Amino acid sequence: MVPTLSARGLVKRYGRVTAIDGADFEVRPGEVLAVVGDNGAGKSSLIKALSGALIPDAGEIRVDGEVVHFRGPLDARRYGIETVYQDLALAPAQDIASNMFLAREKRHPGLLGKLFRKVDQGWMRAEAQRVLDELGIAVKSIAQPVETLSGGQRQGVAVARAAAFGTKAVIMDEPTAALGVAESGKVLALIDRIRQRGLPVVLISHNMPHVFEIADRIHVHRLGRRVGVVTPREHSMSQVVGLITGALVLSEDGELEEVSSAVRTGLGE
């Protein structure tokens, strides 16, 4: 199976600091891939490279097996890669439909659109409602300002926007970080519905219960590179934490092995 989005040997340095150190990555069609790692492990830099927000110094990124060169987030979007950041990038005073089509406004057909650049608000509201209904996101009115929505509903609008325009992959950065139990559950259900549509989701999260509930595979990142890919079916939370901290390593034959404190010290701890 050709990965939808993959990377090999990515490197990014900032002077003497190496943020990405020969990192590999791959997400397959129709799966939820969780990316986990300690603070400073390089997860954010890796995701920025995959979403076009960061240009790596070395290595390659592929979409459907084809080498691509992202010069910015717009290039990644053109290839069908959408990112939902922690701040959601929503305009609170604007309505839901306007946020769904932010920077992608549909012009009115005919002279109104060509000469006066009039936005087709009716079409955008109908299309936004269709996407929300398809993903099971309930709101009182598609015309209500985003600032009147709950935290979970705002997250839903941001995710719906990504799902509407993403054709290859949706990247989500800590989508449940500021949400309560009920709203977090709704976001996880939304991620599952996106997966059911065949669109892969890359989930960056520190919440291990959420990761084990929704992820098909778990990419463990440490010291700027991937140290292993495991599955919730075959591995426990404590084993994943061991990989994150360096207490465990994944051998070439896929077995987890303990690392002595002396060896960990030599590896840079």
Rank of each mutant, 00 (worst) to 15 (best):
L149T: 06
Q144S: 11
D133N: 14
L190V: 01
Q121S: 14
A128W: 05
R154F: 14
I142Q: 10
L188A: 10
Q129W: 06
E134T: 03
G156N: 11
A178L: 02
Q155D: 08
G166Q: 04
T176L: 05
Q153K: 02
D120Y: 05
V146W: 02
I194Y: 05
G180S: 05
A126K: 06
V119Y: 02
R154M: 13
T167W: 02
R125E: 14
E183A: 06
G151N: 03
P175N: 06
T167M: 09
V159R: 12
A138K: 15
G136K: 05
K186P: 04
K118E: 01
G156I: 03
I142N: 07
P145I: 06
A138I: 15
M172D: 03
R130N: 11
Q121N: 13
V181I: 15
A138Q: 15
I137A: 10
M172G: 07
K114W: 12
D120P: 05
A189S: 14
V131H: 01
R117N: 14
P145H: 14
A128F: 05
G166Y: 13
A164I: 05
Q155F: 04
L135F: 06
R117W: 08
V146R: 00
A189E: 15
L132D: 07
E147W: 12
G166S: 07
Q144C: 05
S184G: 15
G180Y: 12
Q129V: 04
Q153V: 10
D192A: 15
G151H: 09
G122E: 15
R125I: 03
V187K: 00
L149S: 13
V187D: 02
K168G: 04
G151K: 12
G151R: 10
G152W: 05
R195Q: 15
K168C: 01
G151S: 09
I142E: 08
L188Y: 04
L115F: 14
R125S: 00
E174Y: 05
M172E: 06
Q144A: 07
A126N: 00
V119H: 04
Q153H: 08
V157F: 01
T176M: 00
A162H: 06
V139M: 10
F116A: 08
L190R: 03
K168Q: 12
V159D: 04
G122P: 07
R195N: 10
A164G: 09
G180F: 10
G152M: 00
K186G: 04
D120R: 04
G151M: 03
R195L: 11
L149W: 10
I137V: 14
V131M: 09
G156K: 01
Q144T: 09
R125H: 07
A177V: 02
L135K: 05
G180H: 12
M172N: 01
K118M: 11
S150V: 00
R193Q: 11
M172F: 08
L115N: 11
A128K: 06
D173Q: 13
D173I: 10
G166M: 04
R161A: 10
R117I: 10
G180T: 10
A158I: 12
V181E: 11
S150K: 14
R117P: 00
E134I: 01
A163M: 08
K168Y: 00
A189F: 08
R117D: 11
D192F: 08
G166E: 13
Q129N: 14
